[in-house]
Write a protein that binds this DNA or RNA. Sequence first.
DNA 1: TATGAATGAGTGTTCATTCAT
DNA 2: TATGAATGAACACTCATTCAT
Lengths: 205, 205, 205, 205
Amino acid sequence: MNTRSAALVADTGRRNEAVILNAALEAFGRKGFNGASMRDVAKLAGTSLSNLYNYFPSKSRLLAEVLRHANEELQARVRRAVADAGDDASSRMREAVRAYVGFVVDHQVAMLVSTNEVRYLDPDDRAALVAERDSTQGTFEEIVAQGVASGEFRTPYAADAARAILSGIGAIASWYRPDGRLSRGQLAEQQARYALALLEARLPH
Amino acid sequence: MNTRSAALVADTGRRNEAVILNAALEAFGRKGFNGASMRDVAKLAGTSLSNLYNYFPSKSRLLAEVLRHANEELQARVRRAVADAGDDASSRMREAVRAYVGFVVDHQVAMLVSTNEVRYLDPDDRAALVAERDSTQGTFEEIVAQGVASGEFRTPYAADAARAILSGIGAIASWYRPDGRLSRGQLAEQQARYALALLEARLPH
Amino acid sequence: MNTRSAALVADTGRRNEAVILNAALEAFGRKGFNGASMRDVAKLAGTSLSNLYNYFPSKSRLLAEVLRHANEELQARVRRAVADAGDDASSRMREAVRAYVGFVVDHQVAMLVSTNEVRYLDPDDRAALVAERDSTQGTFEEIVAQGVASGEFRTPYAADAARAILSGIGAIASWYRPDGRLSRGQLAEQQARYALALLEARLPH
Amino acid sequence: MNTRSAALVADTGRRNEAVILNAALEAFGRKGFNGASMRDVAKLAGTSLSNLYNYFPSKSRLLAEVLRHANEELQARVRRAVADAGDDASSRMREAVRAYVGFVVDHQVAMLVSTNEVRYLDPDDRAALVAERDSTQGTFEEIVAQGVASGEFRTPYAADAARAILSGIGAIASWYRPDGRLSRGQLAEQQARYALALLEARLPH
DNA sequence: TATGAATGAGTGTTCATTCAT
DNA sequence: TATGAATGAACACTCATTCAT
């Protein structure tokens, strides 16, 4: 149905749960959290309105679960990439950025919903998600700190650099088209270069 | 009421119109376009629900006007800044970024609403606004092109650099607090540096 | 604007009053009393909404005036026709029918509004109008009575014949098209024949 | 509640649907389509406003269903009557008229709503209903044609006679009172006589 | 687990009418 | 006489949620 994104939530065990989560992601992506109705979600999930409530106690909690899954996947990708990268900050930053970009491209809608609809979460759910996100951003901040310490990165504004980098990458979700000028790989390469340049890393010439 | 932003729409001549536009901006900022009701707007504007419709024919058109005013102000600031800047691409980029950051900080809510709620515009209004926004981005793209041509900027990814820069600056609206670590001026300076670094400009050491 | 009907209310003295009455007739004709708004009327009259209330104190009274004018014209036509007709019941009935048909064709919309929207009048206005209408129907009933007395009409159901005849003629308003199969004159002739036949008059062969 | 009409829609199977349809008929009958609100209908049906929409997707479709049921019943009565009548045109016309009158008397409100509110239907629904009505009128037109061909009816205006007859009968709905001068049967007999007379049938003396 | 019926609060919008000018 | 701004009530319709089955 949506050719730009693979299903975000895998179909393990409780089958309908995954179906509903993916339907909700799609609905929220199309119309926003407040613009999409539970009926929309039910229709996309191919089930009845009332059956939704057998899986999620409220619309808000449904959104929370959608965002939790999205963030989980993003975090996993980034952590794996960093773990598999070399030891120097530049390599690690490059791989972290590539992974982040990969997620944004693979799950464009999830990224959009993630950034635009967090605010509609109930306070507790929002706090939990923000904490998770901060932790992902923390991974980038650590790499920045490492690079500054090692002299690889010379930016005088290290404290905010990770956020600046992630803002730019996150925004990709709002304009990237898979059939556009840049391939998935080229985009990742480009963003990595932007990131390292922003950090004033010693770039290869 | 909102301490983070001065009124976006000036109160010249048609008074209630400005009052309503500012109320709408605030309401949409607090709850999003779909989350805010016309009743919310009326309450904030201190008028009756039905009277809103003497000024704007629909909620959607009200949003369109809010966004048009916001973009107008942003565009004016950037153009003025570029016109007043030096001749070299680096100076012009620096001033353009400063102006853009200034707008985001002065009209944080307007910036947030602008990026998050455009999608709810009617197609025609959306197209018109996107065109205006592209024109603002075009100003940045021209500076990039100038810098690349003159050798000031050495990024191999010039085509997408303006967008990357503006994404990062726009995102400021979602986290900046006037009482935070950075002053308005420091933030502007920082963002200018990020921008020039991303462009791989020859930086002063 | 409406090619099927001449203006019902003549433009004597208080000019805008006639303009408004004709506009109201058109509006009520197009959308019904409850479907047409005072704004609709104002637009058609080429004046402002609030100005309507300088002429008529309420929507309901506006309708009452429209219907009063329509009925006045209808009544005048019928009375004039009967007065100008011969002495025998058949001739008088024939002319009365012709006149009635003439009104329906000349003021189709007025006839439609008259029959469909009376019910929305305030009780007093409705009573007054119904009385006027009964008086017009009374004219026909007298002719029937005369014809029965003289032996011209042989129907055993004289008491309800006038109403039956007028129902049929009134309904013409809902289907007649000036460019249809029958001319104005042919239609009148046809209806006169139907009426006399229904009354079981001795018809010419 | 309404002593003048039996319930039009029978309560078979889908109970609430019939309840709502009858409530809608009553509401539209009392105040007209535009004058009656969905809240009125809900109140009469003894259910909630929003529940109405579980049965009918819009006020307009609700009206369409009401009118469809009414026309179905009318059509069925007329067809049955004609089928059960003798072979000559006069008998068939007499029975057809009797059946039509019977419907008007039994379902006075339905007849009124049917004639006054069709115009508020959506174009497609209106077209469908008009087609059904034309088919009923067609039944009468065929009888007229038969009678003219056989020499039973001598009217020179055969083409419009069926419509003239049905207009008169339909109008009964707007004045008949069950406790009035005429009984149901007398009224039917009277109308049959009017019809045959109008057709210039050879009447029994 | 799944459904369709039900509900009360809320949506954007329009209404007839009034008022200040 | 004429206007534009204003209002409170009402409109058709949709909402998230619940309940009986």
